[in-house]
């Protein structure tokens, strides 16, 4: 799924990364606990979260993620966007709640295992 499609499905504002919306991603995860993301996530390219601080972007960078989606109308700070620019991570902000946002993406084919990345 293209990041552009994610932004449309989630009715999200693109806070940074307008020129990277054509990037393809194959899997996503949702968590407000960065400790858990660091410990349990593997190869998910998109992080949905309701937590807003710079460590969210850093965690995404450590996990080689491509896109962070802030749910529940939370908006990232300028400082966070600077870190995202530095790391090349697209930042989206959606009015949807976590459960709904994850559900919509899942229902539209964005799973948590990145199967589509493995086809020959």
């Amino acid at each position: 799924m293209k990041i552009l499609e994610i932004s449309k499905l989630l009715n999200a504002e693109v806070c940074w990364g307008e020129d990277r919306l054509e990037s393809e991603v194959c899997s996503a995860c949702g968590s407000d606990m960065m400790s858990d993301v660091l410990a349990f996530v593997k190869d998910q390219a998109v992080l949905l979260t309701g937590l807003v601080n710079s460590q969210v972007i850093r965690t995404a960078e450590m996990m080689d993620m491509r896109c962070v989606v802030f749910v529940r109308n939370k908006k990232p700070s300028e400082e966070m966007l600077d870190i995202a620019k530095e790391s090349g991570i697209v930042v989206l902000a959606s009015p949807m709640r976590m459960y709904d946002a994850c559900g919509v993406l899942y229902a539209n084919g964005l799973g948590d295992h990145g199967e589509t990345a493995n086809h020959e």
Partner: peptide, 12 residues
């Protein structure tokens, strides 16, 4: 509240 302190750091 900042998203850390789940007791996963050292094991991870």
């Amino acid at each position: 509240n900042l998203g850390f302190g789940a007791g996963m750091g050292l094991p991870n």
